[in-house]
Amino acid sequence: MSLDAEQVKKIAHLARIEINEADIPGYAATLSNILDLVDQMAAVNTDDVEPMAHPMDASQRLRADVVTETNQREQFQSVAPKTEDGLYLVPQVIE
């Protein structure tokens, strides 16, 4: 499987990563190499195999419905790039 420049752009957009136009052919080439490696998977028939999402054959533990957290806004927002009146700020969202 190989990826062309258009596909790389499309994936980069989905992943919201800016890639310089000049770097796209390089990404297309290395990503295609990785996909060639990955395509080795096709060699084994897995028709009757149950997918394994997780190494442990366990089930989800449930947490008691108790409020344990207190307001730590100051501390959390001390690492935020841009805030005002306790809100995180982003460029205007148009709906």
Binding site: E84, D85, L89, P91, Q92, V93, E95
Partner: peptide, 15 residues
């Protein structure tokens, strides 16, 4: 929630 009032021309986010 996104709050669309004007914060320096930006949108405020309340989580």
């Amino acid at each position: 929630k996104s709050l669309h009032e004007d914060y320096q021309g930006m949108t405020g986010i309340d989580l």
